[in-house]
Computed example of a mutant assay.
Amino acid sequence: MTEYTVHASSIVEDGASIGAGTVIGPFCHIGPQVTLGAGSRLRSHVVIAGNTVIGENAQIFPFASIGHDPQHLKYRGEDTRLVIGRNCLIREHVTMNAGTVQGRSETTIGDDCSFFTGSHVAHDCVIERNVTMINNVMLAGHCTVGEYAIIAGGSGIHQFTRIGHHAYVGGLAAVEGDVIPFGMVLGNRAYLSGLNVIGMKRAGFNRDAVRNVRKAYRMLFSDDLTFKENLDEVQAEFPEDPLVQDLLGFVRSGGDRAICFPRHSRPG
C-alpha cells in the first residue's frame, strides 16, 4: 500500500524518495534525484528538480520551482544540490536554485523558514533557521542569512552579502553591504537605521540584553573615534556580554562586502 498520495495528473519519476504521509496535488513534477520528507504537501503545479533534499512537513504552493540549474553562466551540468530543512513554507512562484562548483556546490536552507510569493534564493546561499523572506525578495548568489532574520518585500540583496541573525531588512531596500546582527537597514542604497529591537523582544531577549546591544551600537557607530577605535572601545566595555561579542565577531570576521553604516557615520 502506498504511504503517500499522488494526484493522477502528477509525475513522480523513478528514483525519487517520497516520505510517508506526503500529499502531491495536481500537475506536479518530481525529478528522479529528489528526496521529499514525510508529511509534506504540494498544492499543485509544483516542480522539484535536480539533486534536491527537502525535510519533513514542507508546504509548497503552486508554481514554485525548486532545485533547477543555478543561474550561473559557468554552470555545465555539474552534480550540485539544494538542501531544505524541516517545516518550511514555500509560497507561489518561489524559485530556489542548486549550488555551483565555483561556490559551495550546495544551496542550504534551515528549518522553519518562510518564503513568500515570488521570492528567489540563488545558488550557494546559506539561510539559517527561522528566516522569513517576504514577497519578491531577490537573494543573489553566495549570500548568508542568519537565523530569525526578516527580509521585507521587494528587497534586493547583492551577491556575497551577509545578513546577521535577528536583522531586519526594510521593504524595497537595495542591500550591497553586510548587515550586522540585530541591525535594521532601509533604503536604496540600504543604510543602518538602528536595531531590530522589536525582533529582539519577540525572540525573548531580556531588557538588559537589549540595553547592552543598544549601547554597543551607539558606541560602535559614534563619529568621535575611528571605526577600529570604536571596536576596541566596545570590546573593553562589554568583554563578557555574549550578544555584543557576537556582534563584534561578525564585524571582525569580515566578508566580501563592507558592512552597512548609519547615514550619519563614516567608515574609518
Rank of each mutant, 00 (worst) to 15 (best):
M96L: 11
Q235F: 02
R252V: 12
K228R: 12
R266I: 00
R207T: 14
R43N: 03
L195N: 09
M219G: 12
G141I: 13
L172D: 02
T117L: 00
V251H: 07
E240T: 09
S253E: 15
V47R: 02
V210Y: 01
D241V: 00
R252I: 08
A20Q: 14
T35K: 14
S222T: 09
D112R: 12
F115P: 04
R162Y: 09
C125H: 10
V121E: 01
G31E: 01
L248V: 04
N196F: 01
V145E: 00
V47Y: 05
E147M: 10
G153W: 01
K215Y: 06
N130Q: 13
S155E: 03
L172Q: 14
E240L: 00
Y168I: 03
E78P: 04
L73P: 09
D124A: 11
G21H: 05
F182K: 09
V126T: 14
N136Q: 14
F116Y: 15
T144S: 14
Q71H: 07
P62G: 05
Q159G: 08
E106A: 14
R189F: 07
G21E: 11
D224R: 13
G170N: 03
A49P: 00
V83N: 05
C143A: 14
D111P: 11
T22Q: 09
V137I: 12
V46P: 03
M219H: 12
R129I: 00
G77R: 08
E106P: 01
G103H: 08
I127W: 04
A16S: 06
N51V: 00
V101F: 11
Y191Q: 13
A122T: 02
K228Q: 09
H72F: 05
A98V: 15
S265H: 15
R43S: 05
L139Q: 05
S9P: 09
T52H: 06
V244I: 05
K215N: 13
Q33I: 00
S155W: 07
V234R: 04
R86L: 06
A209Q: 15
T132P: 03
R43K: 10
L225M: 08
M1S: 15
F63E: 12
E3T: 12
T80K: 01
G153Q: 04
K228N: 11
G199S: 10
V210I: 15
V131G: 01
T35M: 07
G50Q: 07
